[in-house]
Design a protein around this nucleic acid. Structure first.
Lengths: 211, 211, 211, 211
DNA sequence: TATGAATGAGGATTCATTCAT
DNA sequence: GATGAATGAATCCTCATTCAT
């Protein structure tokens, strides 16, 4: 029988299929509430098949995070600042990066829910998530330090604190934007990634007093 | 047999004791990982005793959140702005409120971990947590609106968005401050509530460009 | 309801009941083939009840062995030789001890099957069994050494080797005697403990050439 | 694709290879703990390949025992007594046979561990092992009967009992000799087959009192 | 109020075996 | 002959909850 049926994924694709299904289930239902039987049920394979591809429930989660982390960091790291510029340049650069990040989040909302959501599980998993977030924050830190080096930001500021504040801001924005059901009536729903990036960048540099 | 033994807490206190123990366990281990047997073990009572005071594991969690929410909102709502003032007044007022909030968080870190952490569980529980956070965010919103009314902030700003950004900022700061082990090497550890409040308020109003 | 029903064992007896049932099942079916559901089924209790009394399947096995080991060693150690005597004394003393041992084995055949049978399981369990057998062999060793001290046996003999040979003899005899189905048509079935003890003691001291 | 790769064993040899690997695994880890995946893993072939050569896990075990049994019995049966002789002759003949047996055991320790060890499994398998041991015991029985016929041993002795005792002795000696790790500090470790055979034969005929 | 034994549904994981290629 | 992906029955153990005393 040729492997041309529609909803079956072939060969090396089974692994992918299971990861995709698991990602969605983990994001929507949470780690604990997601049963292996749910995952294989969605995939239309037997329970044992899962264990051909993954050592355990924890293992597939970790792998999902690991893969997502790489993609996410690639998005943030791109566009590292090279030359000095005006304040406007700086705001625009930040806006561009945030825009890329929000677009990525929009396209990978289940992954973002895993990373930013409040559904985690075992110590190992929590650690993997925390690591990923730290890596993100670090990317922001590097950008701020570079801007100081180029004398675009005042030298006096506490860079680690500021990158923490920035990361907090962004986590909150993405959460409210994508998981609206959890944050009804917030100020971000319905906005485009572009709009959000502009507003966030403005707040980042000028605070509440910036128009 | 009368309950007059030395290290037992009497009637009305048992409930409190169980809630305190459960709060700590939930915060440290997470909802799922916390077993009723852990709670009663810590309390030194029998398994069945738990169910005399609480309908279920979910019920005690909900009650803990409910109680904490009231205290938390009391802290935030106090100091609602009455009269107009200078920008400096505004920053100082915000700083004062943040300082109260951070002090409360410091004194109630387990509760904050439940509210801000990433360990939640059933739909009902997640909802209770989300409600509490929304209520917090609303308190910020009212303050911003009042400041606009008093012409202390530009009318043009999107108030809901700004309160979301503010809430994000504060959530992130508190998380990094109290749950350091999860966010090693961030820029907030070791700071006092007062210092943090000052820095956060500055960022709130002036952004990265403020000195 | 008074706890006077016939086939239910009360209070602290549940543990005993489960151990007795498990002992029999382990002996007859083997460790792996014995399911927890078999044990609780025989006991007429729910699956979870088992885990109220024992940490795991392995744990109950280990406990059974441990308990049996103490009884067994008590039987062997009694009658440690004090004074010198004739060869006949020595043979009779050995016969008496073997007789006690065989009677114990007869009354505790399931335990003996666990210890001497070929049904063991996890490393921990195999170790516990091996330990018990070594302890038995040691008891024989002490007796032989004492007999040499009293000049009842020639000094030249290799005591450890001889106690190994003796233990081998006894293990084989008990196995063949109690688990006849596994050794059909051997020379011990149907004999009394007394007869067996006499024959074994004779062989022990005089070998094949003894009448 | 022809099976001409370098480290692959061709057609008829694959079966042998699998049996050898399985023998070792069964002996070392036990029947239950040995997984088909272990066997094929060691052999470097795919899981399915196993089932081209053997009907089941049980089947390969049975086949291993069957093959070993024939070799073992050949060793014991050789040297059946023809003519009468002195007691010394008899002891020497026994010693010679035991020496052959111990040498065989030394060269086939995995097989002996299967036969004498305490790791067996299904009823069918246990039966096959028991049969083999009975066959061994029978060989000893024939020898004793022949010795009586030739008036080298007293007529009065219970031949079946004595062959059981003899078999017990030998089983114990071999176990302690080869599987030292299970019987630490026994009196046989480090001895040569020749030495053991001499000591055992002496005990066989003269008991503890023989020098 | 308090106890603690009992319940039983539920879920992760294992592994011998099958089979299309 | 050989592959390796797929199967699914089997089983241990967990833990929230109940209830007789």
């Amino acid at each position: 029988m040729p492997t041309s049926d529609s909803d079956v994924q072939y060969n090396g694709e089974r692994r992918r299929q299971l990861m995709n299904i698991a990602l969605k289930r983990f994001a929507v239902d949470g780690y604990h509430a997601t049963k292996i039987s749910d995952i294989v049920g969605d995939a239309g394979v037997a329970q044992g098949t899962f264990y051909w591809y993954f050592k355990s429930k924890e293992a597939i989660f970790l792998e999902i995070i690991k893969e997502g982390r790489e993609q996410l960091l690639a998005v943030i790291s791109r566009g590292y600042r090279r030359d000095a510029g005006t304040v406007l340049d700086m705001v625009q650069a930040s806006e561009a990066m945030l825009c890329r990040l929000f677009l990525f989040a929009e396209a990978n909302r289940y992954l973002m829910e895993l990373l930013l959501g409040r559904k985690a599980a075992s110590d190992l998993i929590n650690q993997a998530i925390a690591d990923t977030r730290m890596a993100m924050e670090n990317a922001f830190l590097l950008n701020i330090e570079r801007a100081i080096e180029l004398r675009m930001l005042p030298e006096a500021i506490d860079t680690r604190l500021r990158s923490s504040l920035l990361m907090s801001l962004i986590e909150g924005v993405i959460s409210r934007w994508l998981f609206e059901s959890m944050f009804p009536g917030n100020g971000v729903e319905g906005k485009t990634a572009q709009q959000l990036a502009a507003e966030t960048a403005k707040f980042e540099f000028f605070g509440l007093l910036g128009i």
